[in-house]
Design a protein around this nucleic acid. Structure first.
Length: 399
DNA sequence: GGCGTGACGGTTGAA
DNA sequence: ACTTCAACCGTCACG
């Protein structure tokens, strides 16, 4: 079979050699080594070179970076072409992106109105926020014999949590064990003991961030620096307590008794834990740094895509690497800027213009029937318009 | 032949 | 500074 691979010099665009039948990392790697040798010969730094030139070629001859999202420009193009009535299979061939990817991007766009990929990496917002821990502590203080499942029920009943972000019973048990300690035991050993200074640290010693609902003292409103932090954490039972005999770490390890305030407030007071709750943290003002970064790293990208970029989850470094374009170089520097694409979202009826990268636009809208109807066959005018606008050579027959 | 879907190998970033 | 882990990615192959 044939394998396509790319050759790149630091001074030129990639040259795609051959027509791909399958991805063949060996050739990529061989080229990779050749590039390193090349650069070493010219005294260029390898690291900067490495970060720019990895990538693979798919069966269609398109270049992609495994694990990384397609550039926004390509994502935008996929949506544009779909709106012009081009079938996904034709888009796939035209842009040399796998049809699975085209399908996925279009499905996501129809659902969310955004062309952006989801948030990559990170962790789910924690459910054991300081407020939750505080309530758990109060429940435990009020009823030292309360069971974890009862606490869970009370968190729900009191509206502290909803069914989506209520901690599991095991989480509550862990909180009781590690962060609250055994409240049912009297703190008979507390008197006269002074805690290590580090136990009194507030959030901001470790998480010096400021959050909208966080007071300058590092304590969230409504979560005062209370007994759990001060008195409970400073109970140091003797080595002869049942807890110590049983080897419960919370009593032996000062760091395990940080108390509720030991939590970072970064994720506190999440309204919900579903993934769609993430976006605002990444892009409070719609198009955030991430999108801008992406544009910087993909100079071929269009500023017009901003209008497709909702404030959805999007990690700042979500896109990098080299998309030298597929073999056909369907994306060339400057092309996107110059196309002046004026595109309307089917649901929003908005018109897209270039140079509006800072405008936050959220396209979330209920899917409409006309959004999902099968595209009408391309008219000749459509073809001509598309060719003139995008510089694409579209197939004249639909299949 | 078109398309939805899941496995796969990969990246990312909070914990 | 490093590791872990669960999110995401696009490709590929299958039905």
């Amino acid at each position: 079979f044939f394998t396509s691979f790319s050759i790149r010099t630091p001074f030129s665009q990639d040259l795609i050699v051959g027509i791909g039948r399958t991805t063949h990392s060996v050739f990529i790697f061989r080229t990779f080594l050749a590039r390193i040798l090349f650069l070493c010969c010219f005294g260029l730094s390898v690291p900067s070179f490495i970060e720019q030139t990895y990538g693979e070629v798919n069966q269609l001859g398109g270049v992609f970076v495994n694990g990384r999202p397609l550039p926004n420009a390509i994502r935008l193009r996929i949506v544009e072409l779909a709106q012009l009535g081009i079938r996904p299979c034709d888009i796939s061939r035209q842009l040399r992106v796998s049809h699975g990817c085209v399908s996925k991007i279009l499905a996501r766009y129809n659902e969310t109105g955004s062309i952006l990929p989801g948030a990559i990496g990170g962790s789910k917002p924690r459910v054991t926020t300081p407020n939750v821990v505080k309530n758990i502590r109060e429940y435990k203080q009020g009823d030292p014999g309360i069971f974890a499942w009862e606490i869970r029920d009370r968190l729900l009943a009191d509206g502290v949590c909803d069914k989506y972000n209520v901690p599991s019973v095991s989480s509550i048990s862990r909180i009781l064990r590690n962060k609250i300690g055994n409240l049912s035991q009297p703190n008979q050993y507390e008197s006269g003991k002074h805690p290590p200074p580090q136990t009194a640290l507030s959030y901001n010693h470790i998480y010096p961030y400021s959050y909208p609902n966080m007071s300058p003292t590092g304590n969230p409103p409504g979560v005062p620096v209370t007994a759990g932090h001060v008195s409970l954490s400073r109970a140091w039972p003797s080595a002869h307590t049942v807890s110590n005999i049983l080897g419960i770490r919370a009593f032996m390890d000062p760091t395990a008794i940080a108390g509720a305030d030991g939590y970072p407030t970064k994720m506190e007071d999440w309204g919900g834990v579903n993934r769609t709750g993430f976006p605002s943290s990444h892009g409070v003002n719609g198009i955030d740094k991430s999108a801008i970064d992406a544009d910087i790293k993909y100079p071929q990208q269009s500023s017009a895509l901003s209008s497709y970029v909702s404030a959805c989850a999007y990690s700042p470094s979500n896109q990098y690497g080299v998309y030298s374009g597929p073999a056909g170089s369907y994306v060339t520097p400057g092309h996107w800027q110059s196309q002046g694409a004026s595109l309307s979202h089917p649901g929003s009826g908005m018109t897209m213009h270039g140079g509006e990268i800072h405008s936050p636009v959220v396209f979330k809208h209920p899917p409409r029937d006309e959004d999902r109807k099968p595209p009408s066959p391309l008219s000749k005018q459509h073809h001509e318009a598309l060719n003139s606008v995008h510089g694409l050579s579209l197939p004249t027959s639909s299949s």
